[in-house]
């Protein structure tokens, strides 16, 4: 009895019916049934924890619901309220954009310069370990570490600035810079990750370009601007867009910092959604906020897909 499905091996039907019927164990362990068993856990999970939640969240967003009593259908009322009536939603939205844009404006150039130095330095494992420490540290620890460092009068940062004769700002207390502080802490957390992405991109640039340019007398600055940056464009785009998406979706640091920093300036849409859901029990409104923010993320993601399809980079 054979499980080979190639045409020449396929037996005529009459012959097959004479063969002994395969046992249940044989059938389950066969090439046609086994893959479904292998993939079953993922399919079941995908149904319960991916497709169902997406539909459920969509439904919740069309109702008024406190999580306990029966939801009341309000149609697009929640979306209408958030987009056209609620003054806070747009504040949180612009905070989100400010945060996401800030993380790439500060974080990406830093990571690029560091990666450029990193790929040509000795002791890569050591540098990499050091730059990765913040990325593998839990966000609660990050928040507390920086709360102590950034204490107005006695934190290490302001004491150092003071020693240098500079006025230390109220990093976490001044409403006009609290969000910038969040951006800087987030950049600190993500630097190692972006550095790694860039160093992978840099490793892909053929050394012969640099050698040829050096023979022509180019200095390091020229090498960086004339060879590295243009050759790195696909990686750069990838990092920029994925960082932007991460920034739009991020809110845990702000949530953990909410006690110490001024509330308004650091409230991003994700945090606004979370608080509406789990502090105010306005599930419908929160789900609608989540879907609005998701729409923005989706648009950026589609732009990314377009850019990369056109560039034909790293397609699997």
């Amino acid at each position: 009895m054979t499980h080979d499905r190639s045409p020449e091996a396929r037996a005529p039907l009459t012959e097959l019916s004479d063969a002994p019927r395969p046992t249940l164990a044989q059938r389950v362990g066969s090439k046609s049934v086994a893959p479904w068993i292998f993939i079953a856990p993922m399919l079941v999970f995908g149904a319960i924890f991916f497709i169902l939640p997406l539909l459920y969240a969509g439904y919740i967003s069309l109702t008024r619901w406190n999580g306990f009593t029966a939801p009341r259908w309000v149609g697009l009322g929640n979306y209408d309220y958030l987009l056209f009536t609620d003054p806070r939603f747009w504040d949180t939205f612009w905070n989100t954009i400010y945060f996401a844009a800030g993380t790439i404006l500060i974080g990406v150039p830093l990571a690029l310069v560091l990666a450029y130095a990193f790929t040509r330095a000795y002791g890569q494992a050591v540098w990499r370990s050091i730059y990765w420490l913040p990325y593998i540290t839990n966000v609660v620890a990050v928040a507390y570490i920086w709360q102590f460092l950034l204490d107005d009068s006695f934190g290490l940062v302001n004491r150092a600035l003071d020693a240098a004769g500079l006025p230390g700002p109220g990093w976490l207390t001044d409403p006009s810079i609290a969000m910038t502080t969040m951006i800087l802490i987030f950049v600190w957390m993500q630097l190692g990750h972006n550095l790694l992405l860039f160093s992978a991109g840099l490793a892909g640039i053929d050394e012969s370009y640099y050698e040829a340019a050096r023979l022509d007398g180019a200095g390091e600055r020229q090498l960086f601007l004339d060879i590295t940056v243009p050759m790195l464009k696909p990686t750069l785009l990838f990092v920029l867009i994925t960082n932007f998406i991460t920034g739009l979706s991020y809110f845990v640091l702000m949530l953990v910092m909410a006690d110490v920093a001024p509330q308004g300036p650091i409230k991003v849409t994700g945090l606004y959604m979370y608080e509406m859901a789990f502090s105010d029990q306005r599930l419908g409104r929160a789900a609608a906020a989540a879907y609005i923010l998701f729409t923005v993320v989706l648009v950026v993601t589609l732009v990314q897909l377009r850019v990369f399809r056109r560039g034909g980079v790293e397609a699997h």
């Binding site: 924890f49 997406l54 989540a290």
Partner: peptide, 16 residues
């Protein structure tokens, strides 16, 4: 599916 951010799932999965 990897492109769907986690924040979208917090509320529905909690109640599921």
């Amino acid at each position: 599916a990897q492109m769907f951010p986690f924040f979208l799932f917090i509320i529905p999965i909690f109640f599921i």
